[in-house]
Amino acid sequence: MSKATFKPFILPLLLLICALFYYFGELVDWAAWNALRENFFYGVHDIHRLLFLAPIIYAGYTGRVKGAIIITLVSLVIFLPRAFFISPYPDPLLRMLIFTLGAGVIGYLVARIRNEEEKSRRLEVTITTERDKLLKIVDSMADGIIITGPDYKIRFMNAYMVDAFGEGTGLTCYKHLHNVDTPCQQECHIPDVINNEEIGEWECTFPVGKTYEVLAAPYVDSDGTVCQISIFRDITQRK
């Protein structure tokens, strides 16, 4: 049998156990189980009530705000007979109401935390789906796309550029594309694009023998760094 089969029985069972424990002294009296007679079951029931936190918190976790409120009210119904008719101690109703209110607030907070957790999980799934969709579009483009950081390191290459130059994410653009050890002195437009936020367009010939028309624009990456996004169009045939 699966876990889901038992799920609906957890709350009623918890409440039943709590109620039996709460009225155990009366049950012992009624059934004349003298061997089980303990002073603990006939004292002030403030400690006994604490057990009800378990079903209230569980209800907040699974049934959210509505579940927490309903189980708090059901617990109140269970507390009422003792407060009304049984308890010989002072202010039984007031003590019981204060506990119920506190337990209800705890259940409500658990439900709110769970709601927020669920909301952020759904948001994460949505963002991941959207990102995957966008990457699929970018990868299926007929032009190459490269995102380069201000440190000249390649942050992203689409499938077209990977096919043409090989995977170079994390490497410097001058080393990976031009096979040189320092940034290209005349051809490089990264400082203009990133620092001056200019849109640049130029032609670039690479050691692999291909010439590309490059269109570059500033782009703010997910970490807030201003980078350069470049679109490469192969114009070798035209040349």
Binding site: A4, P8, L11, P12, T62, G63, I70, I71, V74, V77
Partner: peptide
């Protein structure tokens, strides 16, 4: 009063599992 509600809850425990 109250016991009717508890009876309903006993027969509809799915109220506490809205996700499922």
């Amino acid at each position: 009063p109250c016991f009717g509600s508890i009876l309903y809850l006993l027969f509809h425990p799915q109220i506490f599992h809205p996700d499922d």
